[in-house]
Design a protein around this nucleic acid. Structure first.
Length: 224
DNA sequence: CGCCAGGGCCTCA
DNA sequence: TGAGGCCATGGC
């Protein structure tokens, strides 16, 4: 039986609390967010699609500097001008359209749930779950390439496992607690950056004592 | 210089 | 329903 809580505890003991969502140190980790803060998290979730957070930060700073980091300004701005302002996040012509589509969704007053979010052009499963978890405190575990990489190496799943299937493993292996999911995903991202990189740094990894990848590829070499 | 970064959509079997 | 192509910038 795979113990998702054990992995969480090991990561938490090693890295400590991460204080996500990491937009702004003044309110990262806050549980009660105002409308503007929630909107900013949604924006970040779209902008960080296949993109490093450092690039997204540049964009958010640029938007704030131009005093348009709010829904009212972004609703009115020309889409091509928006694309220019978010250039540092990459895929800017797609993402400007995604932001416009997302604002149109918010303006429609439909319920903000997973099904409706997935109907919005540009919002897939990870972005939807990030929005639900980090902006709306809903217990959806966020699956990303880091999650697949770490947990397939640990031996919990196949590397190419379907999004919903891996999410189901987390949902059935943990209490459905949004604070836990929030912290856990943040720890996964940190761990993937520090040790479980594409080319992993296994020797001093805090999880290597029960990692299948480590057992198969490292232990023999070290103990020879 | 090449690689990679907290995806998602479209197309084509 | 799954693989492959496409989108784009910046750090290292």
């Amino acid at each position: 039986m795979k113990d998702f809580l054990l992995v969480y505890n090991k990561l938490y003991n090693y890295y400590g609390a991460q204080g996500w969502w990491p937009i702004n140190k003044n309110y990262s980790g806050k549980l009660r967010l105002n409308y503007g803060e929630k909107f900013e998290i949604c924006l970040g979730a779209i902008l960080t699609q296949n993109t490093s957070w450092t690039n997204v930060e540049k964009t958010l700073i640029n938007l704030r500097k131009n005093n348009i980091l709010n829904i009212n300004k972004l609703r009115l701005i020309d889409i091509n001008k928006l694309a220019e302002l978010i250039k540092s996040s990459g895929y800017n012509n797609q993402k400007s359209k995604k932001i416009k589509q997302f604002i149109k969704f918010l303006d429609s007053d439909k319920e903000i749930n997973r099904e409706n979010l997935l109907d919005v052009w540009g919002i897939g499963k990870e972005t939807a779950d990030s929005i639900l978890l980090y902006a709306y405190n809903k217990p959806y575990f966020v699956i990303d390439t880091y999650t697949r990489r770490i947990f397939s190496r640990l031996g919990f799943c196949d590397e190419k496992i379907d999004y919903d299937k891996l999410q189901d493993l987390f949902h059935s292996g943990l209490d459905k607690n949004f604070i836990l999911f929030n912290e856990y995903h943040a720890l996964v991202v940190e761990h993937a950056k520090v040790f479980c990189r594409k080319t992993p740094v296994c020797s001093s990894c805090p999880l290597n004592d029960f990692c299948e990848y480590y057992k198969d590829n490292c232990e023999r070499l070290i103990n020879k």
